[in-house]
């Protein structure tokens, strides 16, 4: 069974691009348009990896990561941030929230797949 990934981004084009790319690489993908929706989905099922945008309405990516880390199912799950900022402060913020790592936007489909494969094979 292919790994199930939760892709979270308020931008429909980014989310569709991520989902399309990952599906093409053989992963199963569920989309969520903000942190609140993602958190609800994550509670209902176990995802092997979560890819989340940082800036989103309703619940931002950092809050999502913090909330996910508190769930028993997601204590060790790779949680990757999709971010446009690559400053050390922003990365530290992500790490402090409990993120595993990040993927800096803009990225192309090849980079996305390479990163995901590195993390979950």
């Amino acid at each position: 069974m292919s790994a199930h990934i939760l892709a979270v981004d308020d931008s429909a084009s980014m989310r569709q691009m991520v989902a399309f790319t990952l599906k093409a690489a053989g992963y199963e993908v569920t989309e969520a348009e903000d942190g609140a929706v993602a958190l609800g989905l994550a509670k209902q099922g176990k995802y092997k990896l979560v890819l989340a945008d940082v800036n989103m309405p309703n619940m931002d990516g950092l809050t999502l990561v913090k909330n996910l880390r508190m769930l028993p199912d997601y204590r060790f799950t790779p949680l990757l941030m999709l971010t446009t900022e690559s400053t050390p402060e922003k990365k530290a913020e992500g790490k402090a929230a409990g993120a595993t790592g990040w993927l800096v936007k803009p990225f192309n489909p090849e980079q996305l797949i390479a990163t995901i494969q590195k993390v979950i094979g």
């Binding site: 980014m14 800036n55 936007k105 803009p106």
Partner: peptide
């Protein structure tokens, strides 16, 4: 932020 991210991608 979203426009920047998307346009780059």
């Amino acid at each position: 932020h979203s426009i920047k991210g998307g346009s780059g991608t």
